[in-house]
Design a protein around this nucleic acid. Structure first.
Lengths: 127, 127
DNA sequence: TGTTAATATTCCTTGACGCGTATATACGCT
DNA sequence: AGCGTATATACGCGTCAAGGAATATTAACA
């Protein structure tokens, strides 16, 4: 398992993380809430712990697992540039929609071709 | 390919997305900047488009690919509860660190056991 | 029309990962 | 000591996706 993104690609692991966001849980508790075989839970927790998403505390025979923020923050950080991108494009989208509702005659998506905005500044553009 | 998380699990796809955040790009441009064989680029773009991460515009023989915000926003939305979690724990961490620097004698992490906070309210805790 | 450039698609192989089953380890309790 | 419970690990299997190489498609242009 190489990156934090691989770790959260697995649906069951995301489910486990979502469970832990409320409070720490034992393996058994996770097992029951997610209706998942115990070895599966343990294995996913192993992956999560190796990647730093969770840490465990020994409580008798139980292990209590709790969230650690760092890897999720890493993902959050990766998203940052894109967040800037889409907030910068909300108004552009609005302008686009404005233009659309006055030229509704064009078929667009049907033929999946030529879709106007912000292309005019390119160099060649043959044809 | 099932979820947006699977899509961004692939490093090359993340690289492509990061490229597109600045401006739209042709396949060739992506191919050169990422030093990646052309079929690979096309295949990853196919996955990205099917998942709604990008859309393409035909420009002569070229196809210009650009970002679409929705899937990334979906990921951002999934992160929201965790963001609340870790911001709620920043101050708890600070208190924790305060406690640490006045009891630096204990070895803690070395034996990977019994690690204090918010456990006192549990029932058994035998030993 | 033939050629070249840009992009997409297909086929094959390989490796990784998740799952299920079985087993191991550790602890508490009687 | 023996048993039950909680958790972890090992092993074999099936699947699926990424990579590489070859080929197909489309458009421009001479």
């Amino acid at each position: 398992m190489v990156s934090v993104f691989d770790v959260i690609a697995e649906p069951n692991r995301r489910a486990i993380l979502s469970l832990l966001v409320s409070s720490e849980q034992s393996v058994r508790q996770i097992e029951r809430q997610l209706r998942m075989p115990q070895p599966a839970v343990s294995k996913h927790l192993r992956v999560l712990r190796d990647a730093g998403f969770v840490e465990s505390t020994v409580d008798a025979q139980r292990r209590l697992y709790r969230l650690k923020p760092e890897p999720l923050q890493e993902i959050d950080a990766w998203l940052a540039p894109f967040r800037r991108f889409w907030s910068a494009h909300v108004d552009a989208l609005e302008r686009h929609l404005d233009r659309m509702e006055q030229s509704t005659a064009t078929k667009r998506k049907a033929t999946r071709k030529r879709r106007g905005p912000n292309r005019a500044r390119h160099k060649g553009e043959t044809k």
